[in-house]
């Protein structure tokens, strides 16, 4: 459902974070809707597996294992996409890392959510901060800068950035992740303003808790899971396919007057706010 009505036949998409979770679901869903796809993620075997699944659908797929925080690799990936798949229309950027790290620690300190850290209670290092910012936020700049000339020239394009509903709420141990995701939402507004006159749509999606490997430690812990469910009016976590269908909506012409926006898909958690 939703795929037939949002066809993107003849389009070429670059999908990052496409090895698993939301990114993989996006790569497969965009291919199902008719696009050829460049599949990007760090792990070679997983990237090739996703590409293979796309071939089985009868679409073309280009597998590029790489780190999206590296400028030269990003530039080359886009060039390779255009030369091997012929064009670029859609950028779906899902790559991201999540770390639970306290900002500062003293002996005996207690922060909300510390159970998730186990015995390893060390303060976030500058390197870890940079790593999260580079992979989650700077990568968006690098990727959009690389596809920009092509989209601007053809006066057409769809950029969909995966943020998080963490961008809208304070969460202990998530200073780097949530800040990077909030940064993405503002990046999207600015880029949408800049590129709007060239008919390029730039939007973000902010999922809540989606059943993927990234949040497996949260879902596996009964107390944490209960807290999540209590805060979610729909009483369940989401699944990657649902998020992928929303990416497809933003990649299709059904969303042609939507730009600069962050669409929240979280069962109602953020809409509710802290709630009592």
């Amino acid at each position: 459902m939703g795929v037939e009505e949002h066809r993107i036949d003849g389009k070429v998409a670059i999908v990052t974070g496409a090895s698993r979770g939301i990114g993989k679901a996006v790569a497969l869903t965009l291919a199902e809707a008719g696009a050829d796809v460049t599949v990007i993620a760090r792990t070679k075997e997983q990237v090739e597996k996703t590409a293979h699944e796309i071939h089985q659908m009868g679409r073309k797929a280009l597998a590029i294992p790489m780190d999206v925080s590296q400028e030269e690799k990003v530039q080359n990936a886009v060039k390779q996409t255009v030369s091997e798949l012929g064009r670029i229309d859609i950028l779906s950027h899902n790559a991201g890392i999540l770390m639970f790290k306290p900002v500062a620690v003293i002996p005996g300190v207690r922060f909300p959510g510390m159970e998730l850290l186990g015995d390893d209670i060390r303060a976030q290092t500058l390197e870890e901060w940079h790593r999260v910012m580079d992979v989650n936020l700077t990568s968006a700049f690098l990727l959009t800068q690389a596809v920009g000339p092509y989209l601007l020239k053809q006066k057409n394009g769809k950029v969909i950035i995966m943020s998080s509903n963490g961008a809208e709420q304070g969460q202990s141990l998530q200073t780097a992740y949530n800040t990077s995701k909030a940064g993405l939402c503002m990046y999207v507004r600015c880029l949408a303003t800049e590129w709007g006159p060239y008919n390029i749509h730039v939007n973000a999606i902010a999922p809540g808790v989606i059943n993927t490997e990234m949040v497996a430690p949260l879902i596996a812990d009964p107390a944490t899971m209960q807290t999540i469910l209590d805060a979610t009016p729909l009483g369940r976590v989401g699944n990657p396919r649902e998020v992928a269908l929303l990416v497809l909506f933003l990649a299709s012409d059904a969303s042609d007057y939507i730009t600069g926006q962050t669409i929240i898909i979280d069962g109602g958690t953020i809409g509710r706010g802290p709630g009592v």
Partner: peptide, 12 residues
């Protein structure tokens, strides 16, 4: 397909 979208306002 938008089963998990709730309490959100899509700005057009």
């Amino acid at each position: 397909e938008s089963d998990y979208v709730n309490g959100h306002i899509i700005v057009i």
